[in-house]
């Protein structure tokens, strides 16, 4: 089994088996969606774009929680040094964390979608496959940055705030694309008419994937 899969399997075993990170992520996301639903006058529904913004807001907060928890797994007993001494490329650590984080985030987002439908009265208008593709496309960018910046903030006392402060501004272009396309999806519009946002998301993913491949080995070694 490739080493990044060994690492991802270990992380998932710990996070899912012990309920680390995922439960808090789901609860926080649902709480955000529920609280915003209370702002709506009775009988009114939120616009698709606002609902999509809430979905990605919940996802980004979840991302911070998940990657803090994922990198915290290597903090006790200098385990990070053990990984550095193992015959494993730092990029395998990056890929393992990103994969585990992606699966956990996607699981949490399934609950957020239910939250959008139940609390905000939203509908995907039968465009489930487009919705799935959009979530996966944006998630790739989210976990690339989450994995890179999670390594940067590991071991820091104020890691939650550090990760949030660096992560959120960098994610703006990706979230803009996600909100625009998500809004279109929830409003029943055709996503192909919004191809410029799709291109923005793909370009973001490609750019930050390249950045992460260059920076992660340095960040993880010096972290």
């Amino acid at each position: 089994m490739p080493s990044f899969l060994v690492l991802a399997a270990k992380d998932l075993k710990l996070m899912l088996g012990l309920g680390l990170g995922l439960i808090q992520t789901v609860l926080l996301g649902l709480l955000i969606i529920f609280l915003f639903s209370l702002s709506l006058p009775i009988g009114e529904t939120m616009t698709g774009q606002a609902a999509a913004a809430l979905f990605w807001l919940a996802s980004v907060f979840g991302l911070v929680l998940l990657f803090n928890a994922l990198y915290h797994l290597e903090e006790p007993n200098n385990i990070r040094w053990g990984l550095l001494l193992a015959p494993v490329s730092p990029l395998s650590v990056f890929a393992g964390k990103a994969l585990a984080g992606a699966l956990l985030l996607f699981l949490a987002q399934m609950f957020f979608v239910v939250g959008l439908i139940v609390f905000l009265g939203q509908s995907l208008h039968g465009q489930w496959l487009w919705g799935l593709g959009l979530v996966l496309g944006v998630d790739i960018g989210l976990v690339i940055l989450g994995s890179l910046l999670g390594a940067l903030s590991q071991g820091q006392v104020a890691r939650e705030s550090l990760l949030s402060v660096i992560l959120f501004p960098l994610l703006i272009p990706l979230l803009l694309g996600g909100v625009q396309l998500g809004g279109a999806l929830l409003s029943g519009e055709n996503l192909m008419d919004q191809s410029q946002w799709l291109i923005l998301i793909l370009a973001f993913n490609a750019l930050f994937c390249a950045v992460a491949l260059i920076l992660f080995p340095l960040v993880f070694r010096e972290g």
Partner: peptide
């Protein structure tokens, strides 16, 4: 192989 103050042991495994 390194054996020292940091045991590289995952406490939750």
């Amino acid at each position: 192989g390194y054996l020292g103050h940091g045991t590289f042991v995952y406490p939750l495994l």
